[in-house]
Design a protein around this nucleic acid. Sequence first.
DNA 1: CGAGGGTTTGAAGTGCATCAAATAGTGTGG
DNA 2: CCACACTATTTGATGCACTTCAAACCCTCG
Lengths: 248, 248
Amino acid sequence: MGCIAEAEYHQSIDVYESIESHPIFKGLPKEVTATFAASARAQHYPKGKILFLQQDKAESFYIIATGWVKLFRETFDGDEAVIDVLNEGCIFGETAIFEDGIHHNSAQSIEDTMLLSLPLSLLKQQMIQSNELSMKMFGAMSRYRRLQDQELEHRDLQSAPQRIGCFLLRLCNQDQLGPITLHLPYDKSLIAARLGMKPETFSRALTRLRRETGIRINGSTVIMDGLSQLTSYSCSACSSTFPCEDIK
Amino acid sequence: MGCIAEAEYHQSIDVYESIESHPIFKGLPKEVTATFAASARAQHYPKGKILFLQQDKAESFYIIATGWVKLFRETFDGDEAVIDVLNEGCIFGETAIFEDGIHHNSAQSIEDTMLLSLPLSLLKQQMIQSNELSMKMFGAMSRYRRLQDQELEHRDLQSAPQRIGCFLLRLCNQDQLGPITLHLPYDKSLIAARLGMKPETFSRALTRLRRETGIRINGSTVIMDGLSQLTSYSCSACSSTFPCEDIK
DNA sequence: CGAGGGTTTGAAGTGCATCAAATAGTGTGG
DNA sequence: CCACACTATTTGATGCACTTCAAACCCTCG
């Protein structure tokens, strides 16, 4: 069962290992993680695949093994708001567990992506049985909430170039000293949407950021002499102190 | 211990009853709710009192008995972002439980407010012991997260007048038919901040909302012929279908 | 090479912010 | 009950940031 591509990809990751080492499951009794691993299904999605839509009945939640996933919502007249863009190690779709089993946003793979899907019913059942699991889920949700609060603040207080600077910083290893080279993880127009601006604005804002901080950009490659170029530019308009939380 | 004012206010609410009937505690074993009730402290705060600041060490979390509380964050150069404005029945400060015991935003009473404060250590301890409590906390957090996601969407996709319309709708009993009268629950400039705009913009946007929907506004009193005036104006730029979630 | 998507650039428009000043509203002490 | 002080709100004039629409450019991939 499953097409060839799927079968191929199955072999490329160790489901059990992925589950067991994930922060959400780490430290739980072997029999619990084993139950999850047993019912996990690894599946590959090409770039652009819709994973589920807002209002869909939710059967599963997902853990990203590799790739990137966009969470978004659409209005009646076709506008789209990007809620978040997630990558390796992130969980999504799990919030439906207490939302009448309905997804409250849509999800799409935006790069080639490998997902582990796990039944929501199992999660619910295990959470009821294992307090440790509930606590971990609570902790994860709590961390996510703080990030969203921060996001809201950024929209209010940071300019477009500052938001881009902040975005780049969160792509870095933040203890790093000296020159840094990094690559934009996905399309510029999606980064734009993720940061709440239009592609044209993103392009112009990037130009301004470059001019005002001295960082260099070539295609999707970003080069900077050090973090301080960006921190002094972006972090003054943010309430968090610098070595701030990693991008998810 | 405790000034006279505080003592007076103590008598005006039934702590045990408030705790027991709160959604977070409802249905928990009597001995658990009793433990919380026993260590709850009711306290009155006049309008404008700072309850805690971002980075403060968190000892307690709070339940609002009456009044309104603003959650906010401040940047180094003095700008302020309002994260949320909460009222009766809302919990806040509890997220510090998994954040190294540090508040990640500031809180201020913006009307005369009566709070129940409860030790975070007790919450943590009880969550470890009671899976049911953990699950309830998770559910509450999950609901809050959905509301924040929606908020982010609104900032992207709704115009200032539409956001005000949406705000008014969430103040209404949404099953209501026919004419509706309601009062703005707090200062217009705070509503403005809550919706991510300046007081001047709020004032002008309100004028436009009035002109374009036909609702009437007099001071802090709002009168409309029915909900449809606003829903057709605001909800087309939102991804949720109308009878949307109550304001907290 | 040529088609098509992603990105940049240009010109013009819109919405919200800012600064400044007028007005309304609220609470105070006389 | 009135006058005053103080704050909240409105209004006006102007500026800036981001958007929109349109066209050019660039890059990749068949």
